[in-house]
């Protein structure tokens, strides 16, 4: 007598059903992973853009107001990186043409800049960066920059004695340590 291969009423084999369930699970897993990855990449792109703008703005702020060597010292090839001239900054911050573009912050982005150590976390450049991050904004880039401040041009005497630790009283008298914080977010 011939053996029956299939039971009556059975359309799919048990193997086929299990295989289909595994395939459905795998597709679901892949789609879920794709969605998560796409969302993460989008968020990373936004954050990267904000980080770059904040970093660039802080660079502009420090470089445009960099200390200059005084007198004959200027002709000897010294560049005083990491030193901000307070006198230059005063002129820069009150100049007529000052805008967010001066710090290379594009239209559509807002900023908030604070001086964290010199005067106890006070706002600076409020004419171009008027208000702090509003509540509800989640994508914010914040870059903290350390530098030394000096009022006016730096003489070679001050520079050499300070870097050699030989300044008469305290080097902080000639070069005060300061910190600014630049926050950028999309408007």
């Amino acid at each position: 007598m011939e053996t029956k291969k299939f039971s009556r009423g059975q359309i799919f084999s048990l193997d086929f059903i299990i295989a289909m369930a595994i395939v459905a699970l795998a597709i679901g897993l892949l789609l879920s992973f794709y969605q998560t990855t796409a969302a993460q990449e989008k968020e990373a792109r936004v954050q990267n853009e904000l980080n770059v703008i904040a970093l660039n703005a802080s660079n502009q702020l420090l470089e445009k107001n960099r200390c200059s060597p005084a007198g004959g010292f200027a002709g000897q090839g010294y560049k005083l990186f990491g030193c901000l001239d307070g006198s230059k900054f005063s002129s820069f911050s009150t100049s007529a043409g000052l805008s967010k573009g001066s710090l290379m912050i594009p239209e559509g982005f807002n900023c908030y800049i604070t001086d964290m150590e010199a005067f106890g976390n006070i706002q600076i450049l409020s004419n171009i960066c008027p208000s702090d991050t509003p509540a509800g904004v989640t994508d914010v880039a914040s870059v903290e920059r350390n530098f030394v401040g000096h009022a006016g041009d730096v003489t070679k005497y001050d520079y050499e004695r300070c870097v050699a630790g030989l300044y008469p009283l305290d080097c902080a008298g000639a070069f005060g340590q300061k910190t600014i914080n630049v926050k950028v977010w999309k408007a």
Binding site: G82, C83, R145, N146, F147, V148, C162, F175
Partner: peptide, 12 residues
Amino acid sequence: TDRALAKFYVHG
């Protein structure tokens, strides 16, 4: 870099 420069100026 910022910290290294600040140390260069102030701390000798």
